[in-house]
């Protein structure tokens, strides 16, 4: 199968230095949740302001000012001063960046948030949802105009430690990527049944012989991550 048409969520990005970066754009499901959190916070703040100021006789004016700021500058403030994350985005491990991978700039943030008016049309961000499904990076109209991306920030869950079954040097000829796979097998074996572990390990049994391939791979993985024979 042609590698080029593999369906993936990764947005590969090559820096001018020739380094490959991986960004993972987030789709509308998780973003709508983040938006809901932010919306609730904004409503809460506006209502609270209403209560706070209603005693002082300038309540309505102040509440309107706060409402205005919340409506238009809440996302801009958080995106610029809090690492591209509003509270809702932070809760769901999302952040806004420029689509070249750099932190979001003022102009971009302002544009993407002012254009929410357009994305909202005709009701409840339906334009945003449809627009995000029409491009690979799930950009809504504001993102397209501003050149921004919403990506995941959290790493994949840290893997459990490898069983301490001893150490064995890795035979010659295993590339870095292949060594990584050995480590991944050892780390993830905790979530796999014994039969499945054996089935997988048997595929490369000739390469890791002699001995039980499952144990052999785990021993090599221990070696790769730096455990030595005398360490506990």
């Amino acid at each position: 199968m042609d590698q080029a048409v593999m369906i993936d969520t990764r947005h590969p990005l090559e820096t001018p230095e020739g380094t490959d970066l991986s960004l993972y754009p987030a789709g509308f499901w998780v973003r709508s949740l983040a938006y809901t959190i932010d919306w609730l916070i904004r409503v809460a703040v506006v209502v609270a302001t209403g209560f706070l100021f209603s005693a002082s006789g300038i309540g309505q004016g102040m509440t309107l000012v706060v409402y205005f700021l919340m409506e238009w500058f809440y996302p801009v403030y958080f995106e610029l001063c809090h690492n591209g994350q509003t509270i809702g985005k932070k809760a769901l491990h999302l952040k806004v960046i420029n689509d070249d991978g750099t932190p979001v700039t003022f102009a971009a943030s302002l544009i993407r948030n002012l254009l929410r008016t357009v994305d909202f049309l005709p009701v409840f961000y339906i334009s945003a949802i449809i627009a995000s499904l029409c491009n690979r990076d799930f950009k809504r109209l504001g993102d397209l105009a501003a050149g921004t991306l919403v990506v995941y920030t959290n790493p994949i869950k840290p893997s459990p430690a490898i069983d301490n079954v001893g150490v064995r040097p890795v035979p010659e000829g295993f590339s870095t990527d292949e060594q990584r796979v050995l480590v991944a097998f050892a780390q993830r074996s905790a979530t796999m049944s014994g039969a499945r572990q054996a089935e997988l390990a048997n595929i490369i049994a000739p390469l890791v012989a002699p001995g039980d391939p499952v144990v052999a791979i785990k021993q090599m993985a221990n070696h790769i991550v730096g455990r030595r024979a005398d360490s506990p």
Binding site: M1, V5, I7, Y24, A26, G27, W29, V30, L133, I156
Partner: peptide
């Protein structure tokens, strides 16, 4: 035809979108 690797939970949903 899909790139296989362990994904975050929401990222898996995004693969569904793709």
């Amino acid at each position: 035809r899909i790139a296989i690797r362990p994904r975050r939970d929401w990222e898996a949903v995004d693969l569904g979108l793709q």
